[in-house]
């Protein structure tokens, strides 16, 4: 098991390096520097600013010193928020994003798996059609449409729930979490359904039934383990999707999280903040992919044995 994890971590390093390199040079080659929007900056001031942020040095040297800082966990200063470091900005935005992501993941997994299991146990009945139609709506209703619609219906028309903010009024976390989680609940429902149907048609389920086991034992003890493996493997990509979804959701609901910072940084050409948050996101995504891969492999005894644990 440890060897498997180690090899996956080793594989993650080139990924991170590519991400950092690509982002760094993309951002540097972008037309229009961070200070070009402020009109009529005195050349001396501009040069002083550039020196302060080391923009006057050769590109490779800049890259080198950025990498060195990064290894020490230092994302550097922000261009647009003078006096604040990227570390501080990430630290300020991350809690809200993490909380939102966690709730959304919870919504996705709980709703999605429940719907998928119910559908798979009653194929081609209304208990199948209703959740699966809902899942289809979830897939065809993108986050940036679902969010405003929910705001319109539950916030503005029915006035049941607050329309924006995060942790300011009670209940203001409900709509963003549902909005972000809905699409993934839909994907997970479909995955769970097809995974469970596949497993339920296996010979060993027939064996379990022939043993006279109660239906809940057949479903939850014998079938679910195999049926959730595709779902677990999907959690990694789902997490990456949730992060990019948070750009939109945090903007719509004015959640003070990293996603909103990132979108603003992109518009402001705040080099170091873009770089910093991209690297931060990439690390998160790589870690989550790793976790979901390891978990999926661990759920399968055959693979687990191959991974070197008994």
């Amino acid at each position: 098991m440890w060897r498997f994890i180690a090899s996956r971590v080793l594989q993650a390093i080139p990924v991170l390096f590519i991400v950092i390199t690509l982002t760094f040079f993309l951002v540097r080659f972008a037309p229009g520097g961070p200070f070009s929007t402020e009109k009529a900056v005195v050349p001396e001031v501009k040069r002083a600013l550039e020196a302060q942020y080391q923009l006057d040095q050769p590109l490779l040297a800049q890259f080198g010193s950025y990498l060195t800082d990064l290894v020490h966990g230092d994302f550097g200063p922000s261009f647009k928020y003078p006096g604040r470091t990227v570390n501080e900005l990430i630290a300020a935005g991350f809690p809200a994003t993490a909380e939102l992501g966690l709730y959304a993941l919870l919504v996705a997994v709980v709703l999605g798996m429940a719907a998928g299991i119910v559908a798979a146990l009653n194929p081609n009945s209304w208990r199948d059609y209703v959740p699966m139609s809902a899942a289809m709506i979830g897939i065809c209703m993108p986050t940036f449409l679902l969010g405003p619609l929910l705001v319109l219906i539950f916030g503005l028309w029915l006035e049941w729930l607050p329309v924006s903010g995060w942790g300011e009024v009670s209940g203001d976390k409900i709509l963003p979490s549902i909005t972000l989680g809905a699409a993934y609940a839909a994907y997970i429902a479909r995955l769970t359904r097809s995974g469970m149907l596949e497993v339920l048609s296996q010979d060993y389920i027939r064996t379990a039934r022939a043993k006279g086991l109660p239906e809940y034992v057949v479903v939850f003890k014998h079938a679910l383990r195999g049926g959730v493996i595709p779902v677990v493997a999907f959690l990694g990509p789902a997490f990456a999707g949730l992060l990019s979804g948070s750009f939109v959701v945090e903007t719509i609901f004015q959640v003070p999280g990293l996603g909103r910072f990132f979108v603003q940084a992109a518009f402001n050409r705040d080099y170091t903040l873009i770089l910093g948050s991209t690297v931060f996101f990439a690390v998160l995504i790589v870690v989550f992919n790793l976790l979901s891969d390891v978990l999926a492999a661990w759920l399968n005894p055959r693979l687990r044995a191959g991974l070197g644990v008994k």
Binding site: Q11, A12, P14, V15, I18, V19, L22, T23, L26, V27, F29, A30, P31, A240, G241, L243, S244, F247, F262, V263, A266, F267, R269, I274, T278, F281, A282, I285, V286, N289
Partner: peptide, 21 residues
Amino acid sequence: VDIVYALPFMIFVVLLMVVFG
């Protein structure tokens, strides 16, 4: 393909659109 798959693509798409207009 595996390595490219692991890249945070949405972020790159946003970046590219910002950088290249």
